[in-house]
Design a protein around this nucleic acid. Sequence first.
DNA 1: ATCTGTGCAAAATGTTTGCACCACA
DNA 2: TGTGGTGCAAACATTTTGCACAGAT
Lengths: 336, 336
Amino acid sequence: MASNKELVEQKAIFAAYLKKKKLKITRQRQVILENFLKTEGHLSTEELYQQVRQKDRTIGYATVSRTMKALTDAGLAREIDLGDSRSRFEPLYKRPHHHHIICVECQKAIEFLSPELEQLQEQVVSRYRFQPVRHHFQVFGVCEDCQEHRPAKHEDFDSDLVFARDALRIALQTEKNGVNFYQSLAKAATDARGRNAFLEMAAEEEKHLRELEGEWETLVKRNKRVLKAPVFLHFDYNELNRLFPSPEELQKRHLERLSLEEALHLALSMEQGAHRFFKRYAEKFNDTRGKGIFLKFAEEELEHCELIQQECDRLLGSSTPLPQSQEPEIGSETTA
Amino acid sequence: MASNKELVEQKAIFAAYLKKKKLKITRQRQVILENFLKTEGHLSTEELYQQVRQKDRTIGYATVSRTMKALTDAGLAREIDLGDSRSRFEPLYKRPHHHHIICVECQKAIEFLSPELEQLQEQVVSRYRFQPVRHHFQVFGVCEDCQEHRPAKHEDFDSDLVFARDALRIALQTEKNGVNFYQSLAKAATDARGRNAFLEMAAEEEKHLRELEGEWETLVKRNKRVLKAPVFLHFDYNELNRLFPSPEELQKRHLERLSLEEALHLALSMEQGAHRFFKRYAEKFNDTRGKGIFLKFAEEELEHCELIQQECDRLLGSSTPLPQSQEPEIGSETTA
DNA sequence: ATCTGTGCAAAATGTTTGCACCACA
DNA sequence: TGTGGTGCAAACATTTTGCACAGAT
């Protein structure tokens, strides 16, 4: 369900590719591209062939096959392997790299995205000094419907909305943790000035939370069905507990009682951690639609850093400059 | 390079499988199984066919193909996909589930194991309520040799030794971190009794470290070439910083100054964390050769827990029982 | 006008199957 | 002695290619 604008953009990319390669824009190639993009899915050559045949009885299998090769070469399609030993293709334009979980009974394939996995891939290629070309993770299993012998319902969802939904969920949870975190700090603060500062921060996070809840409402109102789509963006919510420790976690780490300076210091390093985390997270999306969402999110964490920095200046005096967020951080390379 | 004992075991498994299915043990099936196991690799049907043909000119391609199906069904082989659209097989018996990084130029495939990835798979199937069947992660790229246009050298290593090497490296690093950690705690301890207790713990870890270094020497002496094998067990050494925080990390977490009770409490929770971590880690290996190594390792961490518990009793009196390690812990499920 | 694209059919590639003999148990 | 096994060749499934004609720039 790509927007019309994107269809035009992709046609232009294909045209440019053909021109560069001194190839021709033909009716067949147009029809094939349009049909391929129209169907968000994992079309095999045969399926696509049958589909374009509806539009134009004369188009041959070979042409479909050759055109898909060209589209792949042009960067508009990706050939994927769903384990049924036939070539399948999916649209690539402005879509993040993702993986598939495939039902071995009904062949349904669910897409999911995992920045964690992208990171693992980076570690692996760097460790073995490979120049990366491509990678994929596939999980095969029996889907819920097939386990219960229900007919498999195949629903198509707008992938942009699903992505936005998942990102928003992460954002909401982050803000909730933030509120909790600052309320805990306020409790832990041993003096009144600190308490107030942290309550303010908690209020700030709560304001964000309300805004996000508004966005959530809008999203859901726009498309109720989106709630039924399977999770696309795979996120380990435990990660958040590392960014903003829960009250229990704080206790476990012996941070129930903090001086003003310690508490501010802790808050700053948490916000810096969150900023870095979401910035890196965003980077995993390359030039795809999801990137902006998380960059904005990282930006907000940065604003929090500044707020805290201001509190520090106000409460501690500029005499005690807190350490700046320093890149590079703990790093991704090993010490073997 | 499987041991003779394992060859016999696998033959027995195949025999039992054939018996159960009322199939017959034939000369061809024996030859094919032996050749398949003899070659630790990723044989295609064609390659294996050529190989058994050396032994017995009359064996047909179809028989090889059918036998590999049977071996797969019997659980002795796994069919893998190295992206060249032909069936390839690898031995499965007592080998942990692993993944492949494949050179698109010379087709060389390096195996690597990542418990982290196994965990991700578990999260994914549970999230989508799939009944898991199989999963694999493949990374394609250009290997170092091909990047520099060197002839690809194909070396075979004893997979057991390589696994042991990698496990030992992790263990060594863990103990090193442990020594550091206890030395830091000793410094941070505000009273002399605590300081001594932690120096003792540090010495304990150091003793382990020496033992492990001994094991390392033995391993390397037994087979020097093993050091040249690519990393098999992929481990994120940053993980260790989470188990036993480095001095910098301790400082960052505002734990430079601890009362005896706090310090003991911290040490106990770190050791518990390490125990749990390695126990879970070991579980990812199912019934494979690597499992034992990490279980033993987890066991040692548990002994540390008990040592610390004793210190607590001795120094704090049994009046302050510290919290027990509680399963279930922070858990793997999300809070979306 | 030229040079690439196309459809068709044939080839190529890899795996599976049918069937008449073969050989374990 | 009989059931399942084997090799061979043919069938299958899917993708790729060769070629003569069609059509885009």
